[in-house]
Each structure stands twice: as structure tokens, then as C-alpha cells.
Design a protein around this nucleic acid. Structure first.
Lengths: 342, 342
DNA sequence: CTTGCCTTTGGGAGCGCTCACAATATAGAG
DNA sequence: CTCTATATTGTGAGCGCTCCCAAAGGCAAG
């Protein structure tokens, strides 16, 4: 009665052997049509489903991918970026008929136990790592455990890894050039944490663009922590230096900056132009709509999954770094009229 | 050389049997200290980690929980609710030393393949289901597959299920009473989708509160879809009826409503008071700060995990429905002075 | 020295699956 | 009708782990 449903049992009921049932389940063409029908009937009737763990053990492959976010403090999660990324990765994972498991680090005590699960064999076939900070030991753990992985972002050290990133530097540079073209001269920067590759790249890209325009920050720079609150605080300080434009390294920080500008009785874009990075805020969510460097978050997620699958299947030769271009989406916050979009 | 690391191999190197190594790995006290040390040394030295799938097969338990969100359209994901919920669940899962896998339904083609994975044995020990719509067949699939599950929200039909919910009805009622106490008389409602239990409960709770105050909506009701845009559109329509207050069934919709109020040249709270549900928006993110019915999202997630674990471990008798209370957090948007908080 | 008890260790079987290969059935050609 | 070639099915072994029980070792009491 309480006999566990397995290949043997299905075979018994259909009058065939375990192998034949296995063939049917796995769409092996070497089964006669008649047998196949019979077995399929029994499977539907019993509601049999193969045991995933047994399959994983035999195949030494789980069809599960992991997504590791080592610095998932709750505030960080308020950023729409992660929702979007998780969504994109999840979709792509579904598309290749795999399952996604999530490793979010809360506080330090978790860490060790999570890492040990991440790298333990037989749980996931490979992992996507994102939001790492410079010098994060996780990468080395993964290497040591021979767990296939793909990094979203730019890996910190020179070691060869597979990675998917966006052109943070180019995007930030475009933001600077755009503001310079609009005649802004006293620009300010709300940068992202310098212990992340995105933070570093966006800052240096913005400085590149300024330099090309013969401009300089002259100290009008504050580091935020991706949050709206930090953007607001940074802007409040920066306003003392009377900038005529500000580049915030993330949408959330830009929203904070805009509220600080408004609170100071200044107008955006007339008094202070704002350009941000991410492109995740819908035009009708801020007024004026944010001009932002758009990064293709979903594409990044999808590409990361495809790349990881290739790494797992060993169908890719050398570590490759894929970099997606970014694009400036002009709203009203920078002072350009939407009609004047290049 | 390329000998796979397993219990047998570790045992060979430590001069003991696979059973002894297993005992060491699982902290079985029946091992002499000397042996234990020796085995542990080999384990550290080799970086051995037990094979999760093999373990799962032998134990018939995976230590993995699933989180199923069957209606994860991308827009839905823009709501801070899900980020918060996923975070809470993830933390709680880590705390009990388990792993979380995510089943997000994208579009319909995914569905079947995802469901079949959700209910397939050996992948997860149980699942938490949230954001279901009325009549979602998923619940029946889970029942049929004998997969332990816990629903977040109120299950649609009468069938006995384990569930964790918040007091949507009581919270919405409190919102109505609060506004009525402040002297508002022409209230409007931006409701959440009527095919969700939260939508239904928040609407009926609000109506309860109005009735107790001898008030009526008189048709000033529009259904939103949780998004900011839908809140804005709903408010634009409702303004024609000149309401003096509005209750939006979610924070996001309230933010949309506030922007519609502002766009119409009206003031909040003076002309139209606003109360929302969720309590996920920081006070400094809107001006004036939102008065909102706070639901303990993280607690809900944590409780769901604990309950599911109890169901999986079979340490709980009858299906129980846990309902968390909600609490009105008074900001400025309703017209009450923060000092006047009851 | 023997006996019995408790601690510690080892070996067999089995979890449900896949794979390789052997065995059988089927069919077509001679 | 026999013989091979091919299509189809069954069997054994093994993936790495846990559990159960038997075997071995240690120790104190008789």
C-alpha cells in the first residue's frame, strides 16, 4: 500500500522493467510505441514523478543553479536592482529547465554555514555570484571547491573568471559628457561604495568624462551606500558647494538627491541637473523624470545563466568577460528637453 | 589521482571505515576523541564535503525549502513587499540551516514545467506558497503530490491548509476608523485585485470601518493592480468625486495616488488625506510621510518557515492558520499630527 | 582468568536512479 | 526454415550516503 512510487514499482504495474520506464521518462526513442503508451498511462494514473535526489546522484548533476548575494543587508534589498536581477535570472533559469536556489547572506554568523552549502557538491551545479565587495574570500572558496561560477560585475583581482558586467565606466563617462554638453560646469558626484567594482568604475568613468570636457570635481564628491537616504545626505552636503549638476551612481541615490535639492528650495533641473545610473525608475515615478544611464539588468541575468550553463556543461573554452553596453535615457532631470535627444 | 572524494576515500586516508567518517561528519558522539581528531584532520586537509544529493537520497530529506510565487510578473516585483518577504524567508531558512529555492512563474509556458519541479520528490522538503490568486490550481497539485506546504495569505477555498497571514481586514478597518475620527467624511478606496485574498479582506475591512462610522463609499472605489501607476490612474478618476480621503490597499498604490493628488493641484493631507497598507515605505520617502497599516512582513516570512519546518518534521497536529496583527503607523498623510498618535 | 557489559568500529544493504551491456524478440534475407 | 541484423527489453553495478547490526576492543567485577 504505502509502497513508495519508483521506477521499479511503475515497471511492475506496467509489466516492464525499471529501465524501460526510465527510458520512457527520459524520452529515449528506443522504446516501442506500444510499451511507451502503456507506461505513460501508468505514470499519469499514479502521478509518479522521478526522485530528483536519486537522479542527481546517478547523473552527478542537479539541474539547479545557485545565486549568491553575499552582502544582502536588508537596505540593499530595497533597491529595485536586485528584484529585477533575481527576476531575470529566475526566468532564464526556467527557460533552460533548471531550478534556482538563493543564497542570501544575512549577518556574519550565517556566512560560514552558507558558504559551506554553496560549495558542497550535489546541491547546485554552479553558482552566479553578484554584489561582491573587493577582496571577498568567496571567490577563492569557489575556486578551491571547483564549483563552476560566474561573476556578475567585474571580478576584483586579476584571476581569470567568467563574468558578465555592464559598461559602468562608459556609461558614467557618457553621463559626464551629456551634462557638459548641456553647459553644466560645476558638477558634483555621489559615488557608490569604493569597495565595489561598479562603484569604482562609475566614479572613474565620470571623471574621464569630466576630464575630456576640461572640467573637474574640485572636491564635490561624496560616497553613498546605494540607499536613498545616503543620496539625500550626500546631496545636502554637496549643495554647500553650489553645484549646477550632480551625477548619482544609482537611481535610488539620485531620488534621494532630488529630494534634498527640492528641500533646499532649489529646482531640478534648472538649478541643479541630475543624472543617475541604473535606469530602473519609471519616468512617472519622479518629477521631472530621471535622466539615467540604463543598464540592461535582465539581459545581464539571462546572459549570466547562459554562460554558467556553458561553464557547467564545459562547452566553453577560456574564461570570458562579457560586457553589456549602457545607454543614456534622457528624461527631464538633466535639463535637456526630451525633444533634443541626440 | 582524480579519485572522487567520498566517505570511503576519507576513511581510507584516515585508516578507518566509511561509517566512522560519517559519524564524525554528523557529530555522532559515539566516536573516540582520537579517531575523531584524525578524521577531522583528513577532512580539513582534503577539503572534503559530503555529497548533498547522496545524503538526500539516503535520508529522504533535502534540507531545502521552496518559495513559490505563481504570479511573478515583473511589475509585481517592483513592489518592495516581495523583496522584504524573500529576505525574511531567506534569513529564517538560513537560521534553521536550510537552503531556499525560488520558483518564480514568469509566463504561462513556464508554469507546467515549474509545477512539476515544485512537486517532484527529492528536490525540496516543502514549499511556501504566496501571492496566489483565488482558485489557483497549484494548491491542489501540492495536495495531490503530498508535498508539505504553507500558504502565506488566506487560502481561497475552505480546505484545511497551514497558513500565515496578517490581519488584513482588521488593519483596513482601523484605517477607516482612523480617517473617520479625523473628521473625513467623503472617503474613497483604491482596492487591491479582487482575485486575491488580501484584496478582498482589505476592501471588506475598510467597508466595515466605514459602516461603523455611518459612512459609505457611494461608489468612490477603483480597483488597482498593486502598482504605482494603477494607483495614480485610480486616484485621477476618483478625484472627480471630490473625496476628502483615500485608502489605498498598498503602499505603492498610495504613492501613485499622492502623485495624482499633487498633479491635480490639491494638497495632501489638507484636501485629501491618504492612508495606505503595508508600511514598507520609509517616512522620508514621501512627503508628507505616509500613514500606513504596517504588516510585519519579515515576521510573516519567518513564521512561515518555522511552520513549514514543523509540518515537514511532522511535529504539528492540525492545520493551523496563524494571523499576525497589523498596526497603524501614523505619518502626516492622513492629516493627524504625529503628536496626536493614540 | 573468565565473564559480561559497554564503548567503539566495520560491513552489508538499500535509498531511486542511470548507464553499459547482455538477453531476447522481431524481422528480413537467403 | 535457418541465419543474421536490428529493434527492444532486462539485469547488474554503482553513484555516495545512512542505518542497522554484528564484531571487536576495553574494563571491572566475580
Amino acid at each position: 500500500m504505502a509502497r513508495r512510487l519508483n521506477l521499479e514499482e511503475i515497471g511492475r504495474r506496467a509489466g516492464v522493467s525499471r529501465s524501460t520506464v526510465s527510458r520512457v521518462v527520459n524520452d529515449d526513442p528506443n522504446v516501442s510505441l506500444k510499451t511507451k503508451k502503456r507506461v505513460e498511462a501508468v505514470i499519469t494514473e499514479t502521478g509518479y514523478r522521478p526522485h530528483a535526489a536519486a537522479r542527481s546522484l546517478a547523473l552527478n548533476s542537479t539541474d539547479v543553479l545557485g545565486l549568491v548575494i553575499p552582502s544582502a543587508v536588508e537596505t540593499l534589498f530595497a533597491d529595485p536592482y536586485f528584484g529585477r536581477l533575481i527576476f531575470g535570472i529566475s526566468r532564464a533559469t526556467n527557460e533552460v529547465q533548471m531550478t534556482l536556489t538563493l543564497f542570501l547572506f544575512g549577518d556574519v554568523p550565517d556566512e560560514e554555514s552558507i558558504i559551506s552549502r554553496v560549495v558542497s557538491p550535489g546541491l547546485v551545479d554552479g553558482v552566479i555570484v553578484t554584489a561582491t565587495t573587493m577582496g571577498d574570500p568567496l571567490i577563492d572558496y569557489l575556486r578551491g571547491a571547483e564549483m563552476p561560477f560566474v561573476v556578475i560585475g567585474r571580478p576584483d583581482d586579476g584571476g581569470p573568471v567568467f563574468s558578465v558586467d555592464v559598461d559602468n565606466r562608459g556609461g558614467a563617462r557618457a553621463a559626464a559628457l551629456h551634462l557638459a554638453n548641456l553647459g553644466r560646469r560645476r558638477m558634483a558626484l555621489i559615488s557608490a561604495p569604493a569597495n565595489t567594482s561598479a562603484g569604482v568604475d562609475r566614479t572613474s568613468g565620470f571623471l574621464d568624462g569630466l576630464a575630456e570636457s576640461d572640467l573637474d570635481l574640485e572636491g564635490r564628491i561624496r560616497e553613498g551606500d546605494w540607499t536613498e537616504g545616503s543620496g539625500r545626505a550626500a546631496m545636502e552636503e554637496l549643495l554647500a558647494d553650489q553645484p549646477d549638476a550632480v551625477f548619482a551612481a544609482s537611481d535610488r541615490m539620485a531620488v534621494g538627491a532630488m529630494s534634498a535639492i527640492r528641500a533646499a528650495g532649489l529646482r531640478c533641473p534648472e538649478d541643479v541637473g541630475v543624472v543617475s545610473f541604473d535606469g530602473l525608475i519609471a519616468p512617472d515615478q519622479t518629477s521631472p523624470p530621471l535622466t539615467s544611464v540604463v543598464q540592461p539588468v535582465r539581459k545581464v541575468g539571462e546572459r549570466a545563466v547562459k554562460l554558467l550553463k556553458a561553464v557547467v556543461d564545459d562547452t566553453v573554452a577560456l574564461p570570458e568577460c562579457i560586457v553589456f553596453p549602457t545607454e543614456l535615457a534622457v528624461g527631464g532631470s538633466c535639463g535637456a528637453l526630451p525633444e533634443k535627444v541626440l
